[in-house]
Design a protein around this nucleic acid. Structure first.
Length: 474
DNA sequence: CGGCTTTGACCTGCGC
DNA sequence: GCGCAGGTCAAAGCCG
């Protein structure tokens, strides 16, 4: 730490394992389920078409409501049928009380029949909904499993070719001083030796090497994930998009090539939250605000921010996992296929961010192209200095499957378009999405950090101070 | 008075 | 080694 430790902005980060911004995919399942139980942005009116599940739910709710209304109406009819005091302007003829009674009786019977019908329909809809949810969860579980398989396969094979026991996964220099990396190099030395040439030795070497390789890969990816950024381009007149989190400005700089200053913010929702964001207006179009999130929240996110977390987790995770497969095969990798399967409208257009030191997911919500397919860009780049770009058509209402990756393959583009239109119409969507993705990306880091913490406890030789972390972060 | 913003100084990484 | 640019710090000032 070069500068006096006087600052209490939260450099001595305490990682909270109970954070809601935890786990990448597995727990996001439960999150997803939870999200489906709530409105993404409480208080905001949502179109049922915004989300097939929500739509179905809304439909079901409306049915339930209808049923309730029907009950109320029936009651009202029963109560007011004979009084004539109610506003029954549609009933012009004057009928006798007996006829009225007869009328209400038959009306009641009809309504009861209708009620029964609606109940039955409601029950069917509920079944359908449950079935849809179950199917969705099953599919998502399967997807995750496949991703893990592909990922292991991919990296395992690559590592088999390139890495020996003392080797390291090709990781940029800035990641190598991460605690997670240093732990892997010492691992080989810690291993009790087996007699070379023995079957036990060969078997153990083979399996342990694969373990090491897998751990190396995993840790390298976690390190990358920890540094991953989420950048969101969106049109906004306000100086900063409201994303539900509290931010404190700690700096402002004039960036080269842009007359607009870049502002630096820290999350102040919890003491020690390491999340930062940069906000800058686009030089070409001042109405476009670029917000870049970095780090992972160590506290529960507000509903607005966490809402989209689960639905975007798969996409981001896949993008990132795919991105770590270096070389041109990256695009053709199983993860790439998977990503395209999950993001069916994705194009193969790729961009390389040579300047980005860390993988960056860019969400472009400024494009106005109506009906244009969303762009999922993953570069066949010499990673990890990669930039992933997901372009969502703006409020104009283009189609996108980004928000509902696991469902998209079975949806028509119209459905997806409607959903996207409804979601992106929400002004807080941009920020919430970014915060959510940011938390997801950081989620891996929390796990990694937790693991590192444990490792550092067990390893007496390693000095794993906050300062070190901070320097590494620099 | 506490929290936030502003702003100049400082640090670090990178390219030449 | 030097200069540049990005990022951060922290003192000073502002505001409710």
């Amino acid at each position: 730490m070069s500068k006096g430790g006087g600052t209490n902005y939260g450099e001595g980060v305490t990682l909270n394992s109970a954070s809601s911004s935890s786990p990448l995919l597995p727990s996001s399942l439960s999150q997803y389920t939870a999200v489906k139980e709530m409105d993404f942005f409480s208080g905001e009116r949502r179109s049922p078409a915004a989300d097939p599940d929500l739509g179905l739910k809304a439909l079901t709710s409306s049915r339930i409501k209808e049923e309730e209304d029907l009950t109320v109406d029936t009651g009202l009819n029963l109560l007011t049928g004979n009084t004539g005091t109610s506003d029954r302007s549609t009933v012009d003829d004057v009928s006798s009380p007996a006829e009225d009674f007869k009328g209400s009786k038959s009306e009641m019977a009809a309504m009861e029949a209708e009620l029964a019908r609606v109940k039955e329909e409601n029950r069917k809809l509920k079944e359908t909904l449950n079935h849809a949810i179950t199917s969705h969860n099953t599919l998502q579980m399967h997807l995750i499993w496949l991703m893990q398989q592909h990922h292991q396969l991919n990296h395992g094979e690559a590592a088999d070719r390139k890495i020996d026991c003392g080797g390291a996964v090709p990781v940029p220099r800035q990641y190598l001083d991460e605690p997670s990396q240093s732990s892997t190099t010492s691992r080989c030395g810690d291993r009790p030796p087996s007699p070379p040439g023995s079957m036990d030795f060969r078997l153990r070497q083979s399996s342990t090497d694969k373990e090491i390789i897998h751990e190396n890969t995993e840790q390298a990816q976690e390190a990358i994930m920890r540094k991953a950024r989420v950048s969101v381009r969106a049109r906004s007149e306000s100086p900063m998009i409201a994303d539900g989190c509290q931010w404190r400005k700690y700096g402002q700089k004039m960036a080269k090539g842009n007359p607009c200053p870049r502002a630096y913010y820290r999350c102040t929702m919890a003491a020690g939250c390491p999340v930062r964001k940069q906000v800058q207006r686009c030089a070409e179009d001042r109405s476009i605000l670029t917000t870049t999130y970095e780090g992972s929240h160590n506290h529960p996110l507000p509903p607005a921010a966490v809402a989209m977390a689960s639905t975007t987790s798969a996409a981001v995770s896949m993008l990132l996992s795919g991105s770590t497969a270096s070389g041109p095969e990256g695009l053709m990798s199983p993860a790439g296929f998977m990503a395209r399967a999950v993001l069916p409208y994705s194009s193969s257009m790729a961009t390389i961010s040579a300047s980005a030191p860390f993988p960056t997911v860019m969400l472009d919500l400024t494009q106005e192209s109506r009906g244009a397919a969303p762009q999922f860009q993953r570069p066949p780049a010499p990673l990890p200095a990669a930039q992933l770009q997901v372009s969502l058509p703006g409020r104009g209402g283009g189609g996108s499957s980004f928000a509902m990756p696991a469902q998209a393959p079975s949806l028509s583009s119209d459905t997806v378009s409607a959903a996207t239109a409804a979601i992106t119409a929400d002004p807080s969507f941009t920020a919430a999405l970014a915060a959510a993705i940011s938390s997801i990306i950081g989620a891996g880091s929390l796990q990694a950090a937790a693991r590192n913490n444990e490792e550092s406890k067990s390893s007496a030789n390693r000095s794993n101070s906050d300062d070190g972390d901070r320097n590494a972060a620099h």
